[in-house]
């Protein structure tokens, strides 16, 4: 389950071109911190592209996510399948086309940890976690945070996770997750709305 939820957090896209090391990381870290503090909600469409290296095939999924401070998250796939994950404080609900399953975060340490990682990733503050070794890069358009997992269970699955911010550092633009077997999961966020008013009822699944 740990790995499962990590996947949600680490979205998409491969930008190898033109990145150089950020010389003064303090300024960038401050910008991300300010962004995180200023963000009360995020709403966005997303496209997830799973590249299976063995088959040279892609699975493209589309959906919508909503985050509201402090810890409310609705992550919803609309195609090709309907699939919903909702985190509402200490509760997690997963609903697929056939079944709804509810979990209590307090009864499971792993869930608690996953929750922390998910939310820090959505807010961009994951770099503060000691679970990753972080390197900082920039191009003309993006800042890139390269996160190398340090814990064994994560290392077994992920080789590297890249988090992209636009140069104004207003939100996470894209994420990219590279697995040990070279499979790649990319998440691209579009139609973003920051700090809009969001009803808490959307984080309740019956």
């Amino acid at each position: 389950m740990y790995k499962t939820l990590i996947f949600i957090l680490f979205p998409i896209i491969s930008f190898s071109q033109g990145f150089k090391v950020v010389k003064d990381t303090t300024v960038l870290k401050q910008k991300i911190e300010s962004m995180s503090k200023a963000t009360t909600s995020i709403e966005s469409d997303f496209t997830q592209e799973k590249n299976l290296s063995m088959l040279s095939e892609k699975i493209i999924s589309k959906g919508h996510f909503v985050f509201k401070k402090e810890n409310l998250l609705r992550w919803e796939y609309n195609s090709p399948s309907k699939y919903l994950i909702v985190i509402n404080k200490d509760k997690v609900v997963i609903k697929d086309e056939k079944k709804t399953t509810k979990y209590d975060m307090n009864s499971n340490k792993v869930f608690k940890e996953i929750n922390d990682i998910m939310l820090s990733c959505v807010q961009g503050t994951i770099f503060k976690s000691n679970k990753f070794k972080t390197s900082y890069f920039e191009s003309d358009k993006f800042y890139k945070l390269e996160l190398i997992p340090q814990a064994k269970n994560m290392k077994d699955t992920f080789k590297k996770i890249n988090l992209y911010f636009d140069k104004t550092v207003t939100s996470v633009a894209k994420m990219e997750m590279i697995e040990s077997n070279e499979d790649l999961t990319l998440l691209d966020f579009t139609n973003k709305k920051l700090n809009a008013s969001i009803a808490e009822t959307i984080f309740i699944v019956k």
């Binding site: 499962t4 799973k50 063995m54 088959l55 699975i59 699939y83």
Partner: peptide
């Protein structure tokens, strides 16, 4: 739940890969 991809990769091999919705 998720997606299953089945593909013949060469004349004697076929792969069946199951990936969850979240990849």
């Amino acid at each position: 739940t998720g997606i299953i991809i089945v593909k013949q990769t060469d004349s004697v091999s076929t792969h069946i890969i199951f990936v969850t919705e979240i990849g």
